[in-house]
Simulated scan of single mutants.
Amino acid sequence: GQLVEAAADIRGGAVTPADVSRVTSTGMRHATGEGRTVLHALPVGYTLDGVKGIRDPRGMVAHQFGVDMNVVTCEATVARNLMLAVERCHINVEAMAASPYVAGLSVLTDDEADLGAAVVEMGAGTTTIAVYSGGRFVHAAGFAVGGQHISMDLARGLSATIADAERIKTLYGTVITGGSDSRELMSVPTAGDEQDLPQIVSRATIANIVKHRAEEVFEMVRDKLKDSPFASEPNGRVVLSGGAS
């Protein structure tokens, strides 16, 4: 997502819904690059004659009206291919929404969105971030690392099948170890031709593998949040969601 500013003269008249739509459309055109399509163009705040912080300008009088928007775009071909895949299942697509935006609507309370919060949705192949402030969706980001990478790390580190690694992650995956974890042992089937020769591993070994990948994910989340409006929220809350959380 990117923050976009757009403005228009209204010659001292009252702001109408048509003015809001016109200025919003102008901002969308500036934010849409070649080969990309707009998923969301959500107002963050309005300005009247240079005065910021207006939440609802309709009916108010000004000479110049502006809007700050969070515009979320994606590759047009990716969006079209996704729509085609759904429509081939005989399901009509009414609209598309960005995953981090929907995650924020699902898990944040109104107070959290007003006070400032970041939603980190950890999926299988991606981790996405949505930042809310003043009750508005103000930033979106993401990267292609998720829970599936933890499963692959376990499969490689334990020489196990991917299915067994996924089961181990679900049942025993943690980043916090206890004093007895190094003594708690379990049998893990070996992948390949040596399936009849299971290996014995400790819960501490499993936690260590998971911890290294989790640290990488949260370091990337930290870097993304540094470049977002969340950096100015010293008491902002971070909420985890998604299957890998």
Rank of each mutant, 00 (worst) to 15 (best):
A85Y: 00
T109W: 05
S106G: 01
V93P: 08
S99A: 11
L108C: 10
L108P: 06
C89I: 00
L108A: 03
N92S: 15
T77I: 12
T73M: 09
E87I: 08
M69C: 04
A103D: 08
V86I: 15
V72H: 02
T73G: 10
V93R: 02
A98D: 12
A113C: 00
A76V: 04
A85V: 04
L84V: 11
C89N: 10
V71I: 15
M96C: 14
A113R: 09
M69I: 04
A79C: 10
V78Y: 05
D68A: 01
V71M: 03
N81G: 06
D110G: 09
A97V: 15
C74F: 01
A97H: 14
M83D: 13
L108S: 01
G116F: 04
A103S: 13
I91D: 12
N92P: 11
L108E: 06
A95G: 04
A76F: 02
D68Y: 04
A113H: 00
H90S: 12
E87T: 12
E75H: 07
C89W: 00
Y101R: 07
V102T: 10
V93A: 07
E112M: 05
A79N: 02
N81F: 08
D114P: 00
C89T: 13
T109V: 01
V107N: 06
D114L: 13
D68T: 03
R80D: 15
E75N: 09
V78L: 10
A76H: 04
G116M: 07
A95L: 01
H90K: 13
V86W: 10
N81S: 10
M96F: 08
R88E: 14
R80L: 13
M83T: 15
N70I: 05
S106Y: 09
A95H: 09
C89R: 13
L105Q: 07
N70A: 05
S106L: 07
E87A: 06
N81H: 14
A97S: 14
A85F: 00
V107I: 13
A97D: 13
